[in-house]
Lab assay of single mutants.
Amino acid sequence: MSGNGNAAATAEENSPKMRVIRVGTRKSQLARIQTDSVVATLKASYPGLQFEIIAMSTTGDKILDTALSKIGEKSLFTKELEHALEKNEVDLVVHSLKDLPTVLPPGFTIGAICKRENPHDAVVFHPKFVGKTLETLPEKSVVGTSSLRRAAQLQRKFPHLEFRSIRGNLNTRLRKLDEQQEFSAIILATAGLQRMGWHNRVGQILHPEECMYAVGQGALGVEVRAKDQDILDLVGVLHDPETLLRCIAERAFLRHLEGGCSVPVAVHTAMKDGQLYLTGGVWSLDGSDSIQETMQATIHVPAQHEDGPEDDPQLVGITARNIPRGPQLAAQNLGISLANLLLSKGAKNILDVARQLNDAH
């Protein structure tokens, strides 16, 4: 009898209710805020589980004197976190989706994509230029951005401005803007500013005609071990179906173009009346040469937790077992079709030249 009692006690200790789920994140304040929001949602869904947040620095956090596009290494903000995932030191990792490459290392998958916040870019102005827009900034004003995508589009749109690289986390960039006289304004992701509670610093939100956004911008991705079915089931509740389908289309477009950090590629997606609209573009580094096109596809946005595919093969690095396969494939095909259209119009040449120029500098 006593033996059975011990077995029952052991089973209770090993039951999922007692389990601590370890969540990996970057150390920056924004990353911690984003991770806290994901953990809060998981806690609400699984009140019996405990969650421990483990923060670590990544290569991208450490190399702050070089433009991201020049470092010449993929997975700048993800490699150390993936290493911890691989060694079973954490069970899942919360990322900004735009930091996750469209091809993940073997053994990993994006197990959830959370509801997207505003994906557009924002302009934050130096205190002396508050009330201005990019259009009304004085001639030769210097605007800071760490992104080739932003610089290429904005140089084309605002030729009277000069664009220079600015690195560091959000706090560091804002301090550089406010305390030094080098920059009249800087460009940042609206979602990051909003998550930090800095709505009052948003001086201008850039519309798609001015600057399309990065693939996955404004959404959070939760990376897990691809074979860890328990954790895949656990994080599945975080999937937002519309965000998922938009981001599958965007990531398929980028992957098929073979774009990345070192080339200016941008997108804009919208879901309306059962249609998914995808606009994508590529630019030369100075913005003088560009190709942009829009395509659409009829896609039914499923309700969360309709029964999805059981075999769960990944699409552009994403596993969404609780979302039907048909809409996911339709979104992926839309991204591939748009990429093929741009490639047929000469996108590869623009991107190759951009890559060579970026590598040469």
Rank of each mutant, 00 (worst) to 15 (best):
120 H>Y: 13
85 L>G: 01
308 G>S: 09
123 V>Y: 03
81 L>S: 03
29 Q>C: 14
57 S>N: 08
245 L>K: 03
189 A>L: 02
63 I>R: 09
100 L>S: 07
122 A>I: 03
161 L>N: 04
92 L>S: 04
123 V>D: 05
179 E>N: 12
125 F>K: 02
223 E>N: 11
56 M>D: 14
128 K>E: 15
209 E>M: 05
91 D>A: 08
22 R>V: 14
24 G>M: 06
24 G>L: 09
288 S>V: 12
268 H>D: 10
279 T>I: 13
322 N>C: 15
107 G>I: 01
137 L>T: 04
311 D>E: 14
222 V>G: 03
140 K>W: 14
164 R>K: 12
124 V>N: 03
235 V>G: 04
139 E>F: 14
118 N>T: 15
309 P>G: 15
131 G>E: 09
59 T>S: 14
289 D>N: 05
141 S>H: 11
74 K>T: 07
242 E>N: 01
158 F>K: 06
72 G>K: 03
226 A>F: 10
227 K>T: 07
251 R>N: 06
119 P>W: 11
143 V>I: 12
119 P>A: 12
198 W>A: 13
245 L>D: 00
54 I>M: 09
123 V>A: 11
304 Q>K: 14
162 E>W: 04
95 H>V: 09
127 P>L: 14
339 A>D: 06
343 L>N: 15
190 T>V: 11
121 D>G: 04
181 Q>V: 10
153 Q>T: 05
226 A>E: 15
126 H>V: 07
317 G>K: 00
309 P>F: 14
124 V>Y: 01
309 P>V: 15
285 L>W: 07
22 R>C: 12
190 T>K: 10
307 D>F: 15
189 A>R: 02
144 G>M: 12
36 D>M: 14
312 D>K: 00
150 R>H: 05
246 R>C: 05
86 E>H: 13
170 L>H: 09
96 S>P: 04
311 D>H: 14
209 E>C: 14
85 L>W: 02
59 T>N: 06
93 V>N: 08
218 G>L: 03
98 K>Q: 02
191 A>M: 02
355 R>T: 05
146 S>M: 07
28 S>K: 02
79 K>D: 10
84 A>T: 12
271 M>T: 06
191 A>E: 01
86 E>Q: 12
53 I>Q: 07
24 G>Y: 00
340 N>R: 08
318 I>M: 09
153 Q>H: 06
144 G>F: 01
206 L>G: 06
254 L>G: 00
337 S>P: 02
226 A>Y: 15
155 Q>Y: 09
74 K>Y: 07
45 S>W: 11
52 E>L: 05
299 I>M: 15
76 L>C: 14
236 G>L: 04
331 A>C: 13
329 L>C: 03
49 L>P: 08
268 H>N: 15
152 A>K: 07
104 L>P: 08
68 L>A: 09
187 I>T: 05
152 A>V: 13
58 T>S: 10
24 G>N: 00
169 N>D: 06
134 L>F: 06
119 P>F: 10
35 T>L: 06
318 I>Q: 02
77 F>V: 02
258 E>K: 14
202 V>N: 03
58 T>Y: 00
244 L>F: 02
281 G>I: 02
78 T>Y: 06
107 G>N: 07
126 H>F: 08
28 S>R: 01
354 A>R: 15
154 L>G: 10
122 A>E: 04
198 W>C: 13
26 R>S: 01
270 A>I: 07
186 I>A: 11
126 H>S: 14
332 Q>I: 00
